[in-house]
Design a protein around this nucleic acid. Structure first.
Lengths: 205, 205
DNA sequence: ATGAAATTTTGCAGATCACGCAAGTTTTGC
DNA sequence: GCAAAACTTGCGTGATCTGCAAAATTTCAT
């Protein structure tokens, strides 16, 4: 349907991807996104500065482009799974389904992580995108738990789920150990099944 | 001690507070912080634009000044309580100890909440401050739970605690019902004791 | 193919932000 | 009081982001 509709669509997608990649490349090269200007990014991608801002409102948004892409997929997956699974399991499995470990290069992800965590503006941008995700997912959670989106419970649940997504992925990335990403995610989500108050069941030497 | 050390200290504190209040007032008056300039804020507070930026890096930071103040108190309270209480209880009680309901005007807090949630830049700023709080609190949690700050468990716990703080306060503010803030906070924290997966124990008509 | 319509790219101008710097002003401490 | 320290201010700079209209490109019907 709305897939490979035409040359125009494909060109726009290509430009957007090129801009995002150029941003990443330059941020790595210049040791931090703060040392890169929108003008440089545009030049690297072969478009005008003005065009860069047609695609992205800020260089932070450009760097986090694929995070936002993933968000959409996660929502779709969650919506589907929530129809047949308990909501917590749906979150866990939808997160696993993203397959970050297969889709992206591990070292590149580590670099990206480091770039983000060393730049206040990027931390804010990413947090802001999580808040957007919260707003977009709250209806799903409310429906799945038979509550209202204004109730306390679905908001706590969703908040915990997002924290778990972010934390487990980051933690696995920083130290994969001998587990797969899916296992790390599963472990993290399991912490909330019996109450986060309880310390981890298996300390494991 | 470091209290009313001198005129200079008091003047600086007064100026900072005046700037923060001016920011709030103007944001309310002009229907959104986005429609207010740093220049206007400075004028309202009776200082130069340059001085405004000496105190705050951005107007968003100025509006959220007392949130950041509170953060410091919360950390101190948490640090103290963590020595005698289980960490989850320490978080709950330290949160309650802030006494937002007594310290601030409820309607003003509602207005502030609305300002924040209707401005992407403010959402980002606030989220960023929560991330800072995360970074500052992770050591306390790691120590209290006998884990390393790089472990998964303390990060999940802290994330859940911060989500609970934010969510419970916001929820109570939007609909106090017949409970006190302390009760609302207690209820929210209790959700994680037995596992957030479990739906609320008492649906309550 | 070809030309008109729709869309995208681009340059330019403008408002704002955020910070370094140096001079002017106020507070401090003796 | 008076010198030193700290704060305020104005100026200049580099960057962000947006609106607008002209130029270039793609699409679509013929």
């Amino acid at each position: 349907m709305a897939e490979s509709t035409g040359l125009r669509e494909r060109k726009k997608a290509a430009t957007k991807a090129a801009l995002s990649e150029a941003t990443f490349r330059l941020a790595l090269a210049k040791d931090g996104l703060d040392h890169v200007t929108a003008e440089e990014i545009a030049a690297e991608a072969g478009v005008s500065t003005r065009t860069f801002h047609n695609y992205f409102p800020s260089k932070e948004a450009a760097l986090l482009y694929d995070f936002q892409q993933t968000t959409g997929q996660l929502l779709a997956g969650l919506r589907e799974r929530a129809r047949h699974q308990p909501i917590w399991d749906a979150f866990r499995d939808a997160t696993i389904d993203m397959r970050f470990d297969e889709k992206y290069d591990i070292d590149a992800m580590r670099c990206r992580e480091q770039l983000i965590h060393s730049s206040p503006s990027l931390i804010k941008e990413q947090s802001g995108q999580f808040m957007e995700l919260f707003a977009e997912a709250i209806d799903i959670v409310a429906t799945a738990t038979g509550t209202s989106k204004d109730d306390l419970y679905p908001r706590l649940l969703l908040g915990a789920a997002l924290v778990t997504m972010k934390t487990s992925t980051e933690h696995w990335l920083s130290d994969p150990g001998d587990r797969t990403l899916a296992e790390a995610i599963t472990e993290a989500f399991a912490h909330f099944e019996r109450g986060i108050t309880q310390p981890p069941p298996a300390p494991a030497a």
